[in-house]
Design a protein around this nucleic acid. Structure first.
Lengths: 153, 153
DNA sequence: CTCGTTTTCTTGAATCATTCCAGTCTGTGT
DNA sequence: ACACAGACTGGAATGATTCAAGAAAACGAG
């Protein structure tokens, strides 16, 4: 039933209540940050130290079960959609993150024009905009706004 | 001669030694972080508080004289190349940032496939790789490595 | 040139996300 | 059941950045 445990095991990680809960949280939630995940985990299994949450998040990320994204101006967020090629759309007002399928369809989906000798491993694309919610109400529903992240393109 | 002062003035900012120095630093340096800028500024004009540096950096950024970029896992960096359409190539090992001209050539240079109702204002592209230096020496010259920033695409 | 107002700078403390540490506990393979 | 690597706990520490309140300086008016 609960493939979460199996996923952990086959990733070479021990199956503990904390990690199971972490993975479940991230899978059910949407681009949650560490604090939110910690809250969810605690709601599910009782006390878990903040450290254990960060620790588990790292382990799961290292194992490839989670992906960590870090939009400028907001704490790191985690998502369980891994191994495919997708990008993100971030609301400048409330910080909400949505997935976007790769624009071109192959990875890396964007090729740099000059590489300055770098070996390029990955292209990360972030679209900045305003979500439908924030378009209506000038203000976000409740979450604090991600500080503006400037930049052109 | 020194158009920096004029640039400040015409951006509606007062011309102070600190701000002139900040702008000069960023223009001559390459994607410097606040601390490095502060060091340079102090070298140029004597004591300037950290706060004044952050303050000036914000003001200049707000005024459009500077662009702030924030690659995952490293402190914010500032650049003076503004108003054009370019992206960045970041070294996973040493954190070095290089400019890359827009892949496609128009802004926004990448169009999302679905917008989920968002009003998209900007596309930010970051290429992750390893710089020439770090390819040779396994280790970076001296700067601490940006923590890995995961993610596929 | 001298004010007055407004912006900018100073010092110092605070915040937030995240990490470091050291010791204790617990899955797991044997 | 055992042993031990891996995971968890509590608590302190770090680093980048911000907040706050008062002092100083810039610039337009008179």
């Amino acid at each position: 039933m609960d493939n979460v445990a199996d996923d952990l095991r086959s990733a070479g990680l021990r199956v503990t209540a904390a990690r199971v809960a972490i993975l479940e949280q991230v899978r059910s939630g949407n681009h949650l940050d560490a604090e939110r995940i910690a809250r969810g985990v605690r709601g599910a299994v009782g006390h878990v130290s903040t450290q254990a949450v960060y620790d588990g998040l790292h382990a799961l990320t290292r194992a490839g079960l989670l992906r960590r994204i870090e939009p400028a101006g907001s704490p790191a967020r985690f998502e369980a959609r891994v191994g495919d090629n997708h990008h993100h759309l971030v609301c400048r007002s409330c910080g909400e993150v949505s997935d976007i399928d790769c624009v071109v369809g192959e990875a890396p989906c964007v090729e740099p024009s000059q590489t300055h000798g770098f070996v390029v491993e990955e292209a990360e694309v972030v679209f900045w905009g305003v979500c439908p919610q924030c378009q209506e109400h000038g203000a976000p529903p409740d979450r604090p706004p991600a500080r503006r992240a400037h930049g052109a393109s």
